[in-house]
Simulated assay, not measured.
Amino acid sequence: MRPSQAPKNGHSFSHLVQDALGALRRHLGMEVAFISEFRHGRRFFRYVDSDAAFSPIQVGGSNPLDESYCLRVVDGRLPQLIPDALQNAEALSLPVTRLLPVGAHISVPIQLLDGEVFGTFCCFSRTADLSLDDRDLAVVRLFAEFVGGTVAQAFRQRKNLKAAYQRVQHAIAQEDFHIAYQPIIHVGESRLVGHEALARFTAEPLRSPDKWFHEAAEVGLQEELELAAIRKALENLHRFPAPTYLSLNISPETILKGGLPAVLAGYPLDRLVLELTEHESIDDYAALVAALAPLRQRGLRVAVDDAGAGYASFRHILKLAPDIIKLDASLVATIDKDQGMRALAAAVVRFAEETGSKVVAEGVERPEELQVLRDLKVNKAQGYLLGRPRRAEDLEFPG
């Protein structure tokens, strides 16, 4: 999601705000109701509801904050309730009071949780209304607390998304990450068969790679970050002895965007594996299969990650017919102690034998786990017991 986009529930939320503004305006007999945001010395109109015959302001419009009633209400120069602006000296000091004109006016500050003023919740009419009293002001304050608080939260979320977008974009532009390569071993023959490329970030804030990729997906930069990591991983393919392969993590969404073939151009596809990272059901398996088909025809292999961790991974296996099925680390961690996990792993191995897939166990950390995997005829594995992820320049190969 780009930072300029509203949250997924933004459409229904906007309707809620508009309905609230309209209800309040009609209840008070006013002509205009709006929510403003204070920013950079200006007042921005974020939500507006007006009488059809009088629409002096529009959503997205702005004017100088120091020329507004709003600022004077917030700093105390004007009261929150003004039944007749022409009877208030401070209001008369503002040209807008006579130009519009402004008659009755109610304005309540909207505050964030930390006490910072977000803006105001306002209503006004061109004619005075001496019937307005503290009960009407209390209603506006209630609406301001209910709707205004939610508005402030929504805009704070948008602000956070913008900051996240800039953070991920900077990490991509500056390549604030490196690639670590974890060996994949044929345990029966004690032979290296490949490496999995794993991104490691050096940018602030320091956090796990999955959080970086999750944030990139939230702000619409998933494809850019994933392809940047793949490009960087491929730079070291020449260091690895043939015919060992390199496994590259990628989401189905990035594959469907169509930019992957250009990134892989010029590399030997028969030495590459695409490891799908999606843990949820995929909406359009047919489109994904079609996108992968030309690459697979030229030797590229596909792996499904996290088998045994949930229903989605088994669905991927059935729909995509992967070349490699990777047993999830959570399954491997208890495989020597839990009969159920051992039976599940055995079922995956049997399925792989029937379909021609190969099985790779992830997260192998103890000799006991490795022994059970050998007993189950899982010949390929990776994990700290067999080799930690290391930079390409730190890898050593026999011969």
Rank of each mutant, 00 (worst) to 15 (best):
L276D: 10
R72H: 12
A128R: 04
Q5L: 10
E280D: 09
A345H: 00
G10C: 07
D394I: 02
A203G: 08
L370Q: 04
V372R: 06
R191M: 15
T150E: 14
V359C: 00
S107F: 01
D336G: 04
T254C: 02
V17R: 04
P367H: 08
T127K: 12
K159E: 11
L344Q: 07
R301G: 09
I82D: 01
L318V: 13
A173H: 15
R39Y: 01
L192F: 00
F201C: 05
Q87N: 10
F124I: 02
H316I: 13
G188F: 15
E275M: 12
R296I: 09
S12R: 12
D136G: 04
A290N: 05
V378W: 05
P243H: 15
P64E: 07
G356N: 09
D323F: 11
R366E: 15
R156I: 05
Q371H: 02
A291Q: 14
Q80L: 02
A52N: 08
D270V: 07
Q80R: 09
V372A: 04
C123W: 01
A23N: 08
N9Q: 08
A173S: 14
Y384I: 04
F44V: 14
V96T: 06
G194P: 09
F213T: 09
A164Q: 14
Y285A: 15
E204S: 11
R296C: 12
P183A: 05
L246E: 11
V360K: 02
A89I: 05
I230H: 03
A321E: 11
A89S: 11
S357Y: 04
D394R: 02
Q382F: 05
V147A: 07
V139P: 00
L256H: 04
P95E: 08
I57G: 01
L331A: 04
V219D: 09
F146D: 13
G148A: 01
Q339D: 10
A104R: 01
S14F: 00
V359M: 03
L24E: 01
R298A: 14
D336I: 02
L192S: 08
L132H: 01
K337M: 09
C123Q: 05
A290Q: 06
I35Q: 01
K326V: 10
F34Q: 01
F38Q: 02
L370I: 04
D375Q: 09
R141S: 03
G266S: 10
L206S: 13
G259F: 13
